[in-house]
Design a protein around this nucleic acid. Structure first.
Lengths: 345, 345
DNA sequence: CTGAAAGCGCTAACAA
DNA sequence: TTGTTAGCGCTTTCAG
């Protein structure tokens, strides 16, 4: 910077002012500086800048996993925002372990990021206090931990669960099995509540099966395997769960939607292509990330005020994995696929 | 740090020595320091540390996209390595645009990361010179740009293409259509070469169709759409391409594997669950990331020597999307699904 | 083995 | 509008 100043015939302070744009600088000084910057191919050292000013142009994000495409898709939108607004994005994965989550946040905190985007892996988030104590803007995406509200972007989980359930109920199902990777995550609890709400109108309640977060679709607890095999209608609460259920159904030789109807969560590009294609609740994943970034940026720029809680609507995409219960007469002839192919899509 | 020093009754230099572990410190001094660190809940400021030492504990990664699960899966392994070895990971996406790629790398360079992991989006990588000029360790993963070799972890692309082709040839196919998202990426070129090699033995050559990197499987150039509809055996060179092809095949009403055989690339969890399940080349994605990190860490720790080029083997996972050509007598009766279900898997 | 002191590159007061 | 200067928190000589 000293070299730039010398070459431009100004002081380092002026160079700084030109580069930061904070203070007014005479047009010709600015030009001199810019020319020198260009000639010397100079770039400010962001670490030194942060050290002095206390403000860094980095944003930290922590997600439960990077090998589940749902989270990186959110990050893709956040990263695009960062790129647009001149921030760098540090990414950490908690691996669905609260301990690691806390440790990672503590480590990220040392960099005093301008903001935090957190997709917590469980209801309790101890490290939250530390982020707040450091007065670093914080936005939760997809899920929020227990405790006082913060800025938070999610979908309307109750409505999402209810939509899936209502669809099945309208087809004639009264007995619904809900498969969830975990019972400790709030958004999943709410989806279950949505299902329960709808079933309650008929004096019924969902059977909830915990299938685990583990990646491999081959491994399911024995009880889950049985319960899935005995279900006549299933709502899978996460993308990975949908796959687990499908694999389990294959193992037990149950046919979709003839023997069992299936509603998936998260609309992935393979779902329309699967046979039968999968009816699913489509989340606006990219939008979650975009809005989370927008909200964080506002806070970084000093917006104060009450926590903002955005709940985005979901769409139920009707495809061919759901049908009336097998007991119904409509099913007596013809495969399920034939039955629905023309009707939907 | 001054506070810690005071509380421990030593100088800041000693605190630094304890914390960095670089220089020997008497055991009791060390204990005093650690106690003070604990009591004050002190953490070193990594930016200040870097500013002084010129060494930062951050690693930068740039990938073509974050909304294609292939790249985040590699990043997941890299992130795990970073976490284990005490580095933070800055992630950037080039969005498959060489211009942005260069700009992002230039920006990341300002942080003087300890190392770079790059998955380039095209053959030319201008910014490579800058990374090398800054003497920052650099490892390419999945693909390498044109030019002098560097540390590089990839699969054996020629063998992968050949394996897919050989499988189809053994089933009796001689006419093979290769669908590739792009022609400018080296690893895809090599896969095509692998296919061509095998076909050459029979005096044939593949028909290569460029389907584009765009996300939406609905949109394909008209010519591609036609060529896919007319194919009898298709090799799709990327995960997204597999989906594009499947969607296109659906539109044209072609049945897999009865009318057309399909070999996919990248073995995703939905492939076994699709109907028919998809025969695919399985890449050791997680291993690519793990080895890339291992290699980078060695360089960060000062390893010198010739560029290391690792080529990992792939597996061809046989499922039900491939069969003998429809002209064959074996196909005369029975649906494709029935025909193969029992044989494979 | 330990301490004193210089200074990494920058920004923010303050003075001009 | 600009320049001078102090110092952000740390690591690294260099003496002791």
């Amino acid at each position: 910077m000293k070299d730039v100043a010398k070459r431009a015939g100004v002081s380092v302070a002026t160079v700084s002012n030109v580069l930061s744009g904070d203070k007014p600088v005479r047009a010709d000084s600015r030009e001199q500086v810019m020319a020198a910057v260009e000639a010397l191919n100079y770039r400010v050292n962001p670490a030194a800048s942060y050290l002095r000013s206390g403000r860094s142009k980095i944003v930290a994000a922590i997600v439960p996993a990077l090998d589940n495409p749902f989270f990186p898709t959110i990050l893709a939108a956040v990263e695009a925002g960062c790129q647009k607004d001149g921030y760098e994005l540090i990414v950490a994965s908690s691996g669905n372990q609260p301990q690691i989550e806390d440790a990672r946040i503590a480590a990220l905190l040392q960099w005093k990021p301008a903001g935090f985007i957190v997709i917590p892996c469980a209801g309790e988030l101890k490290a939250r206090k530390q982020i707040e104590a450091a007065r670093i803007p914080l936005v939760f995406a997809d899920r929020s931990p227990d405790g006082a509200p913060s800025d938070f972007v999610e979908i309307d989980n109750v409505a999402a669960g209810a939509a899936a359930a209502r669809h099945l109920v309208q087809l004639g199902h009264r007995s619904i099995t809900v498969c969830t990777p975990s019972l400790t995550v709030r958004n999943l609890q709410e989806r279950i509540a949505g299902v329960a709400q709808v079933l309650a109108e008929f004096g019924a309640q969902p059977l909830v099966v915990e299938t685990g977060l583990g990646g491999a679709p081959e491994l399911l607890p024995g009880s889950a395997e049985t319960q899935i095999a005995e279900a006549s209608a299933i709502i899978a609460l996460m993308n990975t769960t949908t796959l687990q259920v499908l694999a389990s159904l294959n193992r037990s030789g149950r046919s979709v939607p003839h023997d069992v109807s299936l509603v998936g969560f998260d609309d992935y590009s393979w779902m329309p292509v699967a046979r039968p294609s999968i009816t699913a609740v489509r989340q606006p994943v990219e939008q979650i990330g975009r809005l989370a970034w927008a909200q964080l940026l506002e806070r970084i720029n000093g917006a104060s005020g009450a926590p903002v809680h955005r709940q985005l609507p979901v769409e139920l995409v009707l495809r061919n994995s759901t049908a009336a219960p097998a007991a119904g007469m409509a099913q007596a002839f013809g495969g399920a696929e034939l039955l629905t192919v023309g009707k939907r899509r």
